[in-house]
């Protein structure tokens, strides 16, 4: 008799659900809350001084498992590296976040926006202009060039954090 009773109990339990509120979020009408670590659209952020954070090290592009990131490094007159162009083919992106993991300067970040459907695949190819945001994104304080050893415009050798002033090579003092 047990199967019959359990069957009937199950029937009742399912029927009773009729009076419960559905858990569905009616997305386009209602906003969808996403977690703060949601991996959505990729942006390039700026450092606290408002300069591009990306130093064009190519680590994101090599970390990308679908090879959808490409860029070309270049240098300004004072030795600061930055990407001449930076292109992401979002029609290939799988939003795995490896690029963000690989980025040594917190430049590339995945943000909460995921509404990026397009009718043409070519519209999903984002250039640097489309990627670069004006803020620091998730990491407000970090500035790679403040800890790096290279000299750039406005930061000479020895000016970085925890650096001694440049050595006087000609000194013979012990």
């Amino acid at each position: 008799m047990n199967p019959v009773i359990s069957g009937l109990k199950a029937l009742w339990r399912i029927f009773a659900r009729l009076f419960k509120r559905p858990v569905t979020i009616e997305y386009p009408d209602q906003p969808l809350p996403v977690s703060s670590r949601w991996r959505g659209r990729i942006v390039l952020s700026r450092d606290p001084d408002g300069e591009e954070r990306c130093v064009a090290c190519y680590l994101c592009s090599v970390a990308c498992p679908v090879d959808c990131i490409a860029l070309q490094a270049t240098e300004d007159a004072h030795g600061r590296r930055y990407p001449d162009w930076f292109r992401i083919n979002f029609s290939r992106c799988i939003f795995c976040g490896y690029c963000e993991e690989a980025c040594p300067t917190y430049a590339i970040q995945l943000v909460q926006d995921f509404e990026m459907s397009e009718y043409r695949r070519t519209s999903l190819v984002y250039e640097k202009d489309d990627l670069l945001i004006s803020g620091t994104g998730k990491y407000p304080d970090y500035n790679f060039y403040r800890v790096a050893g290279v000299a750039i415009g406005g930061k000479d050798k020895g000016d970085a954090e925890r650096e001694q002033p440049p050595v006087d090579v000609r000194s013979l003092l012990p």
Binding site: D67, I88, N89
Partner: peptide, 15 residues
């Protein structure tokens, strides 16, 4: 084998 950008380098000519 770590060559990158395979799916984005040709996009300007063809997607």
């Amino acid at each position: 084998h770590r060559f990158s950008g395979r799916t984005v380098l040709p996009v300007l000519e063809t997607i």
